[in-house]
Simulated assay, not measured.
Amino acid sequence: MKLKTHILLSSLFYFSIFCNAQIQKNGIDTEEKGIVVADFLKMSGNWFIAYRDGIAQTQADDEKGLVNEHKSAFVLKRSYFTLKKDLNETFSVRYTMDLTVDRDGPDAGNIETRLKYLYVKAKPNFNSTVFTGNWLEVGMVHTPWLDYEQKINTYRVQDNMFIERNKIFNSADFGVTFGGNIGPKMDEKFLKEINGAMPGKYASYVIGIYNGAGYSGEEKNNNKVISGRLSVRPFANTLPELHLSGYFNIGKGNNEEAPDFNQVLGFITYTGKQLTLTAQTHKGVGDFRASYLYEGTNKPIKNNGYSFFGEYKIKKSPLAIWGRYDSFHLKTDDFRGTKRYIGGVSYTVNKYLRLILNAEHNDKALNENNIYELNLEVSF
């Protein structure tokens, strides 16, 4: 294993030498990218390519659970392709394809395509000084939480965020999402140079109603899930880097019997120019796929957990170090539940390319494993 780690470190070093590194803000730029095609629409993409040594990666929308099958291979972890078009000053549309590797059946190994986002977006002008920056998405839309968190923890290339990693819900669904700010918009310079996750100076909110099956699931009942997020900046004029957030789900899991799916989440984060810190806690009943059920019943299992993340961007350098710790428990687990220790180093080549070398140690009910990766993130 030491040899493999040495090879990954060497690869990172030599790749950085031969790349023409444009040293700027660490991490893939958070400002919106894209290529304007014939003055008609904007095209953008995001690719996660990796060398992975460890158990197979699973997603929140996978039918299978964790498979303890060791693999060592170059993999396409995810690939997104997006088209956007402004129809007029109020309305726009978005189309995002999600490309991943088919792992089941006779087509295993082929690249399969499915939709991630497909919506009409409106930015109505309510002429209000209290509710500003209002927007509405209709179709296959963002749900209120993960898009926000992934603007703060930018290491989705390594794996899902804590709540999605534990298959509570995923990032998109069929439905309607409405959001905006309470009070004025935050200073543009801060949003661009520090962090743009929360555009409101004092508070931002998102609320919506959804099928509840996720963007890759078939609706199996007539119930809907209501979700919402409120984020506040308590010291907007003196410590704008500090955010406090709350999130909830109220609804039913996606099977014919519709078991309860309720959740609350608390989140605190500091988003500085060099240092980012987050802490979150979760408590709920069931999950969006109705898979956390007591055996032989339709009774949902209570679950809870917490997660910590930190990143330090080395000043005047393209390097950053980061780490994360997750703890998640089902009421049926032993006292250890699932614990994950994740950490690594990233190297920003330029605003489009980033290399991430990381390791992960999993401990699930006394079943331990390790994962080692060298990731290439492409964002244009």
Rank of each mutant, 00 (worst) to 15 (best):
L3D: 13
L3C: 04
K4P: 02
T5D: 06
H6W: 04
S10P: 02
S11C: 11
N20Q: 13
A21T: 12
A21Y: 07
Q22C: 07
Q24E: 10
Q24K: 14
N26R: 02
T30M: 13
K33T: 13
K33Y: 03
I35N: 10
V36R: 10
V37I: 15
D39I: 02
K42S: 12
W47C: 06
F48H: 15
Y51M: 07
I55M: 02
Q57F: 08
T58F: 12
T58V: 12
G65C: 09
F74H: 14
R78A: 03
R78F: 05
T82N: 04
T82F: 07
L83Y: 04
N88Q: 12
F91K: 04
S92I: 07
S92M: 10
S92H: 13
Y95L: 15
T96L: 11
D98P: 06
L99H: 08
L99M: 14
V101P: 01
R103A: 14
G105A: 14
G105S: 12
P106G: 06
A108L: 08
N110M: 14
N110E: 14
R114D: 09
K121P: 00
K123C: 13
K123D: 05
P124A: 10
F126H: 04
F126I: 15
S128V: 04
S128M: 06
V130G: 03
N134E: 03
E137A: 09
G139I: 14
D147G: 15
E149F: 13
Q150H: 11
Q150I: 11
T154D: 09
Y155A: 03
Q158Y: 08
Q158N: 13
E164M: 11
F169V: 00
S171I: 01
D173E: 10
I182P: 07
I182W: 08
I182G: 05
M186K: 15
M186E: 14
I194W: 11
N195S: 12
K201A: 00
K201S: 00
S204L: 05
S204M: 06
I207L: 14
N211M: 07
S216L: 01
E218S: 10
N221G: 10
K224E: 02
V225L: 02
S227F: 00
S227T: 02
R229C: 01
V232R: 05
P234L: 11
F235Q: 04
T238G: 01
L239P: 03
P240S: 12
H243L: 06
K252C: 02
A258W: 02
A258V: 06
P259A: 07
P259E: 05
D260I: 05
D260L: 12
N262K: 08
V264T: 11
G266Y: 09
T269I: 00
T271H: 01
H282F: 15
G284L: 01
G286T: 04
D287E: 04
F288N: 00
F288H: 02
G296I: 15
G296L: 11
P300S: 11
I301M: 15
E311R: 11
E311K: 05
Y312L: 05
S317H: 08
P318I: 11
A320C: 03
A320E: 00
I321L: 14
G323T: 04
Y325H: 13
H329V: 10
K331R: 13
K331V: 13
T332Y: 11
D334I: 11
G337M: 02
G337W: 08
I342M: 10
N350C: 10
K351M: 08
Y352G: 00
R354T: 00
R354H: 03
K364R: 09
E373C: 10
E377A: 05
V378E: 02
